[in-house]
Design a protein around this nucleic acid. Structure first.
Length: 361
DNA sequence: TCACCTTCCACATTTGAATAGC
DNA sequence: AGCTATTCAAATGTGGAAGGTG
């Protein structure tokens, strides 16, 4: 928290998350489009005059005149810093508004992007120099007489909030914390589908590398569309990551080929009558469900967090196309029976049977 | 020097949302 | 009108190539 003689206080809301990165925090910066910050900067502000008008700004401030590098598992200041350039202040998206409104809600600067391009003209891009130490500064500016006679405002710095700008993460511990805490990086977790041991990750693959020929023991299904794709399947995971040893042939699709549930809880009896199947739209990490807790009917799965039975979708509702493929003989519930809201994005749908069924691809 | 470091881009894998189709 | 299916957009860290540096 930072307070002042004016009585204004600025607090970082996600300080717990920020404080995990004390080794120190590294923040990625890119040139072309700029990079969003993670964690974001989200503050609370108090002590404002509820009826007065304020603008709030953010800028980055060089902490010293050193240039740092990561060598032998630690950061050292190996050179004099690059020239210190004029400060760019980015005005918060909310523009000018009353103190009451500022104090009502979180003060988030999630739109900020860090760029190495000093010529960037994007409104929310902040130019910073890689390998230098930076500290975010919040400026609260009270508008007098419609802003005509206002001063430059009051600045707030939080001592624990600073970072070293990098174009690639240096400290592995820092990188792990980013992956663990940023859901957009979930593919890089041990349970994710990014496989670091793939030979050509990050570079363009040939078609045969991307779509290897399956083992001969895996018969393709009778029904494929003209693209050779599973009907209605959208984002297929990389087949390289598939476990073809799980593949079943056409006469092995029976429900009893699925794992036996360990739970004694009973699945709900409500079920649709037309045997709808889930459409695999986006495939979540396997950590999102526990296949060992599937119900006896194999039509349900246990949500390990909520200890409730769910129909064959873990995050959303998209259900369609009865008997759309002959590989997966499971019946999943009708969307009318499902409480989607608790799972977030309605586009994300998957059932454990279908997930396993993908190994038939 | 030259071993190591940094930067940049395309990429695969995500989440999230908008739009097209029926 | 209400779902379903498809398409679009954005956000992550990574590998490799190329350039930089003490």
């Amino acid at each position: 928290m930072m307070s002042s003689s004016s009585g204004i206080e600025v607090t970082l809301n996600n300080a717990d998350l920020w404080n995990k990165f004390n080794n120190p925090m590294e923040m990625l910066v890119t040139r072309k489009t700029g990079r969003k910050m993670f964690p974001i900067l989200e503050y609370s502000v108090s002590g404002l005059n509820p009826t007065a008008m304020y603008e709030i700004y953010l800028h980055m401030e060089r902490m010293d005149d050193h240039k740092y590098r990561y060598r032998n598992n630690e950061w050292d200041n190996y050179a004099k810093g690059d020239p210190i350039t004029p400060i760019q202040k980015v005005k918060h998206n909310s523009e000018a508004q009353t103190g009451m409104l500022w104090m009502n809600g979180p003060l988030s600067f999630e739109q900020i992007r860090l760029t190495t391009n000093p010529e960037s003209e994007e409104k929310d891009n902040i130019f910073i120099q890689s390998l230098h130490k930076w500290r975010p500064v919040v400026t609260v500016r009270k508008l007098e007489n419609g802003g005509e006679n206002s001063d430059f405002g009051e600045e707030f710095r939080i001592p624990t909030v600073w970072f070293i700008a990098v174009t690639k993460y240096q400290n592995p511990a820092n990188k792990c914390l980013k992956v663990e805490n940023n859901k957009m990086a979930s593919g890089f977790r041990p349970t994710g589908n990014h496989k670091n041991n793939l030979p050509t990750r990050g570079t363009k693959r040939t078609a045969s590398e991307t779509f290897p020929t399956p083992p001969s023991s895996t018969s393709p299904p009778a029904k494929m569309n003209t693209n050779g794709h599973f009907p209605n399947a959208h984002h297929f995971p990389n087949p390289i990551n598939f476990d073809f040893s799980m593949t079943r042939t056409a006469n092995q699709y029976a429900p009893d080929t699925f794992p036996v549930p360990s739970s004694t809880a009973s699945p709900p009896s409500k079920m649709n009558s037309i045997g709808h199947f889930p459409i695999a739209h986006h495939y979540p990490n396997q950590e999102n469900f526990d296949v060992t807790m599937m119900g006896n009917s194999h039509r349900y799965w246990m949500n390990p967090d909520q200890m409730t039975w769910n129909y064959g979708c873990n995050m959303g509702q998209q259900m369609a196309q009865p008997v759309m493929n002959p590989w997966n003989m499971q019946n999943f519930g009708h969307p009318n029976n499902i409480n989607y809201e608790q799972y977030g994005n309605t586009n994300n749908t998957i059932g454990p049977e279908f997930y396993y069924g993908l190994n038939n691809f």
